[in-house]
Simulated assay, not measured.
Amino acid sequence: MEVTPKAIFLDMDGTILNHQNQVSIHTKEIIDELRNRGINVFIATGRAFEEIEGIVPPGFQVDGIVASNGMVGYAGHEVIFKHSLSRELVETVIKMARENKVYYELFPYGSPRITLKQDRDYVENEIRDPKPEGVGINEWSSRKDAIKEKINWADEIRGNEFSKFYFFARTKEQINHWKEKLELLKKEIDFTTSISTEYNVELMVANVNKATGIQQMLKHFNLSERETMAIGDSDNDLPMLRLVNYAVAMKNAPDSIKEVTDDVTEFTCDEDGVYHYLKSKLIL
């Protein structure tokens, strides 16, 4: 890295979040230090904006957040940009998910995620113990928490602003079958899908991803792509990693991610990899 970046974009799950879904105090401290030195630090996550406060340390601050895989961007609580799924797409996808018994969560803006009551039995059954061997503990814990207290089990869908769908399956065969169904639906209604593990898929507005969100955030802050660094670990980070000037993969990332980046952290997300990397590279 020849030039200190003016903007750093950090993924959450598998990057600044460890496998217990926590951001360490060391990560908060290094972000504070970088911001004090005039470097803009942003979050770029697949998670909804409303999820973030509950998984970061007290006092955690960044310059902006690109949430829901590029669907919405915030500077503080100011909305910089926002996209929304159409009501037609929402209703079509829920009907398809029910027919295929696919676990789903719909994320409205500004309110808890929704799953319809009529789908509760089969959705809860997907999260029955024991945990499937291949599913990561952080994803499994997030689903357990969702079932227990995060989902609004609704009689009907209300409102017209939705940031994304999240889908999960216990087996790769089931989620891959669902991905095939979504690809067929794309021929009728245009949208974008993204994956962060082998057991999930998320659905957003067409041509929206972390990279498009970052471009809008950079424009708001009068920054250029030449001045950017990003750190990530999974497939939904690929657009972001390909966009920025200097891309970094986590040690815990698969080889397919590491192959497209400029560097790899020495430590994993469970070893404060982002903290150690930023401290060694940028804090002289």
Rank of each mutant, 00 (worst) to 15 (best):
Q118M: 09
F107T: 01
D119M: 09
E105C: 13
Q118S: 11
E105N: 04
K117P: 00
M96E: 13
Y122E: 09
P112Y: 06
Y109A: 02
Y122I: 02
I94A: 11
Q118G: 02
A97Y: 07
E105V: 12
R120Y: 10
G110L: 00
Y109M: 00
Y103S: 04
D121M: 08
P112C: 12
K101D: 10
E105Q: 14
N100F: 04
Y103C: 10
D121E: 15
Q118D: 13
K101S: 14
V102G: 08
N100I: 00
A97R: 05
T115D: 07
R98T: 08
S111H: 12
K101F: 04
R120D: 06
Y109Q: 00
R113T: 13
Y109N: 00
D119I: 06
P108I: 11
Y109L: 01
Y122S: 07
G110V: 00
R120V: 05
A97W: 06
Y104Q: 04
N100L: 02
Y122F: 13
F107E: 01
F107I: 03
L106H: 10
M96A: 13
L116W: 06
P112Q: 10
V93N: 08
A97G: 12
T115L: 01
S111R: 13
K101I: 00
R120F: 05
L106D: 02
M96V: 04
R98K: 11
L116H: 07
M96S: 03
M96C: 09
G110K: 00
M96Q: 11
P108Q: 13
N100K: 14
I114R: 08
Y109C: 03
R113Y: 01
N100T: 10
Q118K: 14
G110P: 02
L116A: 09
K117H: 01
K117D: 05
Q118E: 13
Q118N: 09
Y109I: 06
N100P: 03
K101C: 02
Y103A: 03
